[in-house]
Every structure is written in structure tokens, then in C-alpha cells.
Amino acid sequence: MPLSLPGSLVSTEWLAAHFDHPGLVILDGSFKLPGVTPIAADDFAARHIPQARFFDIDDIADHDTVLPHMLPSPGAFETYASDLGISNDSIVVVYDTPGLMSAGRVWWTLRTFGHDKVAILDGGLRKWMAEGRAVTGEATPAPKATFHATFHPDAVRSKAQVLDNLGSRAEQVIDARSAGRFTAEEKEARPGLRSGHIPGSLNLPFNALTDPQSGELLQVADLRTAFETAGLDFSKPVIASCGSGVIAAALAFGLHLTGKDDVAIYDGAWTEWGQPGDTPVETGAGKRDDRK
């Protein structure tokens, strides 16, 4: 019997009832910052949801740039997806360990390359394990599949486009980093970067969208309230940003759940913008810092 997703967010109960369905692909999209050990791939090797395959955000990326985990070319993504056993007919459920940190990046990547039959597991591996559900350290071989990508450039913004937006203000920029990093009270972990934020941008830390205990997403009304409290105008399009393009997708997913899809991600994010150069930076409550 064909399988269909109940929505863009699926419960642990739904996944437990369908995780061995032949039409379903489960992806563990967990990610950790550089230098944090054990790395996400090692965590996956130790325990993951049965039948899951590991979506390595750093590997499934453009390796011709020094910027981390930038989107690969459509052709390269076709190869990655096919090797993971994903076809254009696959139903995909993505999770990460905390609930909604990097799963949004995998969800956004698949959609950006034309695959809309993808959902995120509410609460991630944390909730799955808290409920006593099965995990395994055994790898499940991925059957070879064929994936054809249809790239949607409107889902991505470049540095040049974000610079142009400083003048036009046609799109709102919202930053998913912590308040301390946004205001420059905390230094960036990556060496050589300036601290602060893109001028005029809003701030909503990605973990404000989930319950701190369970990792589950807030109710839709509460998600909308969180964005509005941060200053977002739901009538205007959005660019989501963060440190390196990963947690920005959590904001894109949260907005998607509220029905707002005119949202793009600045893929280079602060790792690109914060480098010494000609990009203007604000610190604190709107203090501009144009130091090179």
C-alpha cells in the first residue's frame, strides 16, 4: 500500500508504525560544530533509529569552496541522494539528535533540489529514545536508487544578494544564532570572524522554536508568536541566516509550519559575512561596525 506523509512534521508514533515500510527513507541529519567530539557520524554508528541512513551535511556539500557545507551542484546532489537510496518517489523522514538543530537543513536541502515528500521527526532522536523505542548500531545498506534534481534557486541567497537587500530592504533578514553571538557579546567559534550581525537583521535563536525538555516543536500559534515577538512581519519575504547555514533552516522550517514559504536561506551565512572585508556589521542594538 502506498505511503504518504501526514504533514511536514511527523510524530514518533507515526514513524514507529511505518519505519520498515519499503517506500520510506529515514535520514539521520545530526550535526556538530567543528572540534566537538564524538562527531555526529560516530554517534550515528553507536546508535540510531533502525533503518536510518546518515546524511552527512559536511560531505553532501560543495567541496570547491572554503566555506563549510555549502549546497552542492544539482548533479552532485543527484549522486549523493541516489547513493543514499533516495528516489523521486521516496517518502523521507529526517531527524537529528536534539530535535530541531540540523534536521531542518536536510529538509531544506531536499526541497531545494525538488523533493517535497520530506518531513521532520518531532522531537528527534531525543524523544524517540526517551520513549524507550528501539535504536541500533547496525548499519543498513542503502539500495541504489535514481534521483533527478530540480534546483530551486529562489530558496537560496548569496552574499551579493544580501548586500543588495541592505539598500532595498525588500526582504527581512532573521538570524538563528544565540543572542550573545548576534549582539557580539560572545565571540564567534570560527577563528578570524568579526562578531555581530547583518545590519537591520532580526534575531530568533533556533532553539526558541522547541520545547527545552522534549525537543518537540512549539504549537503553530506559539511559533508565530515567537517570530512576531522577534519583530518579523509575516507579510514580507524572509532571508534566514545563522553561523554557517545549518540552524537557519530551523527557522525556515518553523515558518513553513505557520504557512509561510517565501523564505530563503543565506547559505554562506556569518562564516562568509563575518570575514574581514567590505561587509558591514552591526553589534549590540544596532551599532554599526564597518571595520575591515
Rank of each mutant, 00 (worst) to 15 (best):
D43S: 11
A119S: 13
F77R: 09
A52F: 11
A61E: 01
G137N: 14
P199F: 13
V94N: 09
A170I: 00
R47G: 14
R111Y: 03
A285C: 00
L9K: 04
V263H: 11
D164H: 10
D290L: 10
H115E: 06
I174A: 12
T229C: 00
Q213E: 15
D43F: 01
D175W: 09
G277D: 08
D175S: 11
R133A: 05
R111V: 01
V135N: 02
W270Y: 10
G259V: 07
P50M: 12
D58M: 04
A208Q: 15
H152L: 12
L121K: 07
G215V: 05
G123M: 04
P38F: 10
V238W: 03
F44D: 00
D96A: 14
G268L: 06
A248P: 05
E131P: 00
S241H: 04
P199N: 14
F234K: 07
L232W: 06
D222T: 14
S30L: 02
I239R: 03
A250S: 15
E282A: 13
R177C: 08
D20T: 15
I239E: 01
D64N: 13
A179S: 09
D42Y: 00
T65C: 02
L71P: 00
E138S: 11
D56M: 06
P72C: 03
I247H: 04
Q161C: 05
G124F: 09
R224C: 02
D96L: 12
